[in-house]
Amino acid sequence: MIANTLTIILILVGLVFFAAGTAGLLRFPDVYSRLHALTKADNVGLGLVVLGLMFQASGPADILKLLLIWVLVLAAGTTAAHMVAQRTWTHGEFESDR
């Protein structure tokens, strides 16, 4: 019962971060600020959902997999954000290539 409540609360807070990330992606004015918005969804949003689901996991293998998924998404998000920012910085924002 307590585990279920915790799961629901953690997932709900995680969803808020995803919503905020999407809102930031849509509303922020340039690449760098959008990047800031969506890395929050990557790091905290998924982190909270993973933490919530851990209370429901069926065994230690599932818990480890969930943790691994979070670590991998953290690494992917960091790398992608870093490289997109770097490319935008060196090559410009490509305003004309639509």
């Binding site: 690449v31 969506l38 990557d42 998000g77 490319r87 290539d97």
Partner: peptide, 18 residues
């Protein structure tokens, strides 16, 4: 910009995992 589009795809990937 293409950077914006790529960032959006990145966010979709994370959301898809969730």
């Amino acid at each position: 910009g293409s950077g914006d589009r790529m960032l959006a795809a990145q966010l979709f990937g994370t959301t898809g995992v969730t």
